Amino acid sequence: MAQVLIEKPEEGVALVRLHRPEVRNALGLELRQELAACFLELGADTAVRCIVLTGGPEFFAAGADLRALAEATPVELLLRDTHRLWQSLVECPSPVIAAVNGFALGGGCELAMHADMIVAGEGASFGQPEIRVGIMPGAGGTQRLTRAVGKFKAMKLLLTGEPMTAREAEAMGLVTEVVPDAEVLERALALARKVARMPPLAVRQIKEVVLAGQDASLSEALLLERKAFQLLFATRDQKEGMRAFLDKRKPTFEGR
């Protein structure tokens, strides 16, 4: 049975569901491999303009599958190259919106942080509890969390393993929006629908520049921004968007 399900509920929008409910979507190797293949496929599909990633109405993902890690050796972990399986998410050109119900812990929290926006239910919780089993985050938890919420908040979460509520995560800057639990997927899809209607090349350039600029100096990041801004004036969508604005009509974007 597939552990990752792909749906296309409407034009331009893809919905990716983690489907390993018997272990609360624990991120075993097979699930990670399927997820990587899924994002490679969707990232190469120009008809897909925005992706929603969800786990289900009760939980997003419980983290790594500890049964597969308890007796692992450093060499075994090295040879698994699991960091490569995250690359298709990192490099996906389309924006990704995580729709989080219930808990997103450990690898589940790291997975959510690979998204570009996070919509969380009021009952959702986030955390990096790896320290409680003698290890530390290994899929970006120490780095993405620190970049999102700052050193001092991140240190508390990482060193105590304590979870945070959706409201706390929103206040720290980790979560985009908090909505009632029953409305999480609906709201994420609504955001995806709105993004999918925007000019695709501008959307992709914005995502690329934001992510690349995070690890660059301000002057380098501003240079990236200027070049991407200038490049978009070579697109049909720029001409269509501005003409439509002046003509007081809705634009039709083609991604060209």
Rank of each mutant, 00 (worst) to 15 (best):
R144H: 11
E30D: 14
E10W: 05
G12N: 10
L201P: 01
A190S: 08
R32F: 04
S219A: 13
V13K: 02
E11D: 14
R147N: 14
V195A: 01
A216E: 12
R167V: 09
Q230Y: 10
D181G: 05
A202T: 05
L31S: 00
L35Q: 00
A196W: 00
V75A: 09
A182V: 03
A190G: 03
V119N: 00
A182H: 09
M172H: 11
E7H: 15
A26K: 13
S125K: 03
R236Y: 12
E240G: 08
P9W: 08
K250D: 13
L66T: 12
P137F: 05
F39P: 00
K250C: 08
L189K: 03
C38F: 02
A166T: 04
A37R: 14
A234H: 13
V149S: 03
A244Q: 12
A228V: 14
C92S: 01
Q33K: 15
E110A: 07
G63I: 05
L79F: 08
V133G: 07
G43F: 03
P180D: 08
K207T: 06
A44P: 06
L159Q: 15
A64L: 07
L232S: 06
P129T: 06
G134S: 01
V23N: 04
R20D: 01
L66E: 11
A98I: 03
E22Y: 13
E71M: 14
N101G: 05
E168S: 14
G102W: 04
E76H: 07
E177T: 05
L69G: 03
L157I: 06
E168N: 13
M1L: 11
E220Q: 15
A216N: 08
K151N: 02
T176I: 06
G121K: 01
